[in-house]
Amino acid sequence: MKKLKITLFIAILLVVLAACGSEGETDSSTENQTGDNQNASSEYGLIEEGKLIFAASGEFMPFSYMEGTEMVGYDIAVAEAIAEKLGLEAVPQKAKFSGIVTGVNEGRYDIAVASHTVTEERKEKVNFSKAYYYSGPVIYTRPDSEIQSAEDLQGKEISVSRGSTYVDTAKEYTDNVPQVDSDVVALQSLASGHHDAVITDNITGKTAIMNGLEIESRGQLGVSEQAIAVNKENEALLNAINDALQELKDSGELAKLAEEWVGVDITQEPEELE
């Protein structure tokens, strides 16, 4: 009987030790997996672990605009696709366009996916990714306007979105450049009889016309690259975004997003001006 008790005790002890060993191995595996995720996220220097906080204006249809309380559009879809590639949660933040680059520079947002045109002035404050679409300034007027080309803009009142590159474009023709909160506001004001012209991108103008605004295009003034703004101190995140964009381009997903939200593929650099 004593020998049976000893044998039973040893058997129970072995079961307990095996269970402890198994539990220890599971915890170690879980810790390693969690650690890997944290390391992957930490290398990007994000504001919040596991999240990609990005800014957009929410006032630039079809690139970013509000549907109820949700911000949607091509810019938003691109940001979400990049976040998915990086294994991060996309967190959009609505902000005034004129302050977005400063917000990235000061660390309020990880990145900006807000249809920013790459300029030397902006490159002094932030780094830019590869272009995720191409655009360019276009002249818009009312149908009865005498303005037919760029030469006719001399001395006219040209309204533009505050903080956009179109401010400098307009100032090449006139000193009378009223600035408003968004391109849509400028075009609505133009259609209502204010200003002589508006300079904005072709897609925004076409969308406004489709939505019933009585305005017309009078010529494109150039081609520009639209890219994602990243803090200058965050090279790792910039490189990861460029890799993600390249994958999206190579797979055709970027073009599909453009066609879904904009109606045409704007991801290919135009060979020449139309």
Rank of each mutant, 00 (worst) to 15 (best):
L254R: 00
D110V: 07
E121W: 05
G155I: 13
Y65C: 08
L86P: 08
E274D: 13
E49D: 06
T200E: 00
C20S: 11
H194M: 14
R142F: 05
V101D: 00
D168Q: 12
Q179K: 06
F63T: 09
A131L: 13
I266V: 15
Q246I: 08
E70P: 09
L213T: 03
G222K: 13
L273A: 11
A244F: 00
I203P: 06
A240I: 06
D196Y: 02
A55S: 07
I266K: 12
Q226Y: 10
V167C: 07
P178E: 01
A131N: 11
V113L: 00
P143T: 01
M71T: 11
E124W: 04
A79Q: 05
N231A: 06
D201W: 01
A170D: 02
D196W: 07
I266R: 08
T34Y: 11
E269M: 15
K130T: 13
T7E: 13
N105I: 00
S224I: 09
D36F: 10
R162L: 10
S129V: 08
L52W: 03
A40P: 05
P92C: 01
S251N: 11
M61I: 15
Y166R: 07
I266D: 11
I228T: 05
N202T: 12
E272I: 12
Q226L: 14
T200A: 00
S192I: 10
S182L: 03
V177P: 03
D175F: 13
V177G: 05
A229S: 03
K232Q: 07
G263L: 12
M210P: 05
H116P: 02
V118S: 04
T200V: 01
S164P: 04
M61S: 15
Q188G: 09
A255I: 08
Y132G: 03
I12Q: 13
E269Q: 15
L213D: 05
V91W: 04
T69D: 14
G222P: 14
S161E: 09
L238R: 01
E146P: 04
Q220S: 14
S145R: 00
K256M: 12
K125G: 02
L273S: 13
F128I: 02
E247C: 07
K232H: 01
D183K: 02
M66Q: 14
G107A: 01
E247Q: 12
I199Q: 06
S224L: 11
S115G: 06
G212V: 03
V72M: 08
S57D: 09
D250C: 07
S41D: 02
S161M: 15
N176Q: 10
Q220M: 15
G68R: 10
E120C: 05
L8N: 12
I147G: 00
N242T: 07
T169A: 07
M61Y: 15
L190I: 05
T117Q: 13
E120R: 07
A95N: 09
G163Q: 01
I199S: 04
S57I: 00
V104F: 02
D265T: 10
V223D: 05
N231E: 11
L52A: 04
T174Y: 02
I147L: 01
G103I: 00
G68W: 09
A79R: 00
A236K: 08
M61L: 14
I147P: 00
V167I: 13
E259Y: 11
N231T: 08
G58I: 08
A170G: 05
E89N: 06
E121M: 05
